[in-house]
Design a protein around this nucleic acid. Structure first.
Length: 121
DNA sequence: TCCTTGACTCAGA
DNA sequence: CTCTGAGCCAAGG
């Protein structure tokens, strides 16, 4: 007998991240908010961390960055890998290692995400 | 169930 | 702009 039909949080995170198109990015807090958890940015990081090391499930993890517009990660290694992947997709970084969220954020201005996307998930 | 861990964030200094 | 501290949350032991 199945007790809980709702997928665990990290699965929802993967579903959403899989929809982020090439050349676009989302922030941890944004993902959390869309999933109905405005304060759960940290949990989103936990979810993505579970993909490592094999980087499974065709989840474009590199498209998730922090609110400051930079690649997070504790060690610089994966942050560098992430930046390289994003640059290959056409995402530009300034000399401080930041992207222009105003331009590359998906799916556009804040007013659009939460309401429309939550239902689709 | 309690406790610890982080790919987080925001307000302050 | 950088550095802290406190708040927050799912996972896993």
């Amino acid at each position: 007998m199945r007790r809980n039909g709702s997928p665990p949080f990290h699965r929802l995170v993967y579903r959403l991240v899989r929809r982020v198109p090439r050349g676009k990015v989302v922030t941890y807090g944004q993902v959390a908010a869309i999933l109905g958890q405005p304060r759960g940015a940290r949990a989103v990081g936990t979810a993505l961390a579970m993909l490592r090391p094999p980087l499974i499930d065709d989840v474009p993890w590199q498209r998730v960055i922090n609110a400051a517009g930079r690649c997070s990660h504790r060690d610089g290694f994966w942050a560098d890998i992430q930046r390289e992947f994003l640059e290959m997709e056409g995402v530009r970084f300034d000399r401080h290692g930041k992207v222009d969220l105003k331009r590359v954020r998906w799916p556009g201005p804040r007013r659009e995400w939460v309401t429309r996307l939550r239902h689709v998930l």
